[in-house]
Amino acid sequence: MKDDLHSQAPDHSEQPKNGLDRAIFTVGNGLSLLFLFTVAISFYEVVMRYVFNAPTIWVHETASFLGGCLFVYGGIYALSINKHVRVVLIYDIVSDRTRRWLNIFHHIMGLFFSGLLSWAAYQMVQDSWFTPFGDVRLETSGSAWNPAFPALVKGMIFMTLSVMFVQFALHLIQEINGLRKRNHV
Score class of each variant (00 low, 15 high):
residue 105 F to I: 15
residue 63 A to G: 06
residue 73 Y to W: 07
residue 103 N to H: 10
residue 73 Y to V: 09
residue 65 F to R: 00
residue 49 R to I: 03
residue 90 I to M: 06
residue 84 H to L: 05
residue 80 S to L: 02
residue 47 V to K: 11
residue 103 N to T: 11
residue 93 I to S: 10
residue 44 Y to H: 05
residue 67 G to P: 05
residue 79 L to H: 11
residue 81 I to E: 03
residue 53 N to K: 03
residue 59 V to F: 00
residue 80 S to H: 01
residue 82 N to H: 07
residue 72 V to E: 05
residue 48 M to C: 13
residue 78 A to Y: 06
residue 64 S to W: 06
residue 102 L to N: 03
residue 49 R to K: 14
residue 93 I to M: 02
residue 67 G to M: 11
residue 105 F to H: 13
residue 69 C to R: 00
residue 69 C to H: 02
residue 74 G to D: 03
residue 75 G to C: 00
residue 49 R to A: 11
residue 46 V to M: 06
residue 89 L to W: 12
residue 53 N to Y: 11
residue 42 S to M: 14
residue 99 R to G: 08
residue 58 W to F: 08
residue 47 V to T: 12
residue 64 S to V: 14
residue 60 H to K: 13
residue 68 G to N: 05
residue 71 F to M: 15
residue 78 A to I: 03
residue 70 L to D: 08
residue 75 G to T: 10
residue 68 G to C: 11
residue 49 R to T: 13
residue 74 G to F: 11
residue 84 H to P: 00
residue 69 C to Q: 07
residue 81 I to V: 15
residue 100 R to M: 15
residue 58 W to T: 06
residue 64 S to L: 14
residue 69 C to M: 10
residue 104 I to M: 12
residue 102 L to Q: 14
residue 51 V to H: 09
residue 53 N to V: 00
residue 94 V to N: 04
residue 89 L to C: 03
residue 56 T to G: 00
residue 73 Y to H: 07
residue 102 L to S: 06
residue 100 R to T: 15
residue 74 G to M: 10
residue 101 W to V: 13
residue 94 V to E: 07
residue 79 L to M: 13
residue 91 Y to N: 03
residue 41 I to N: 01
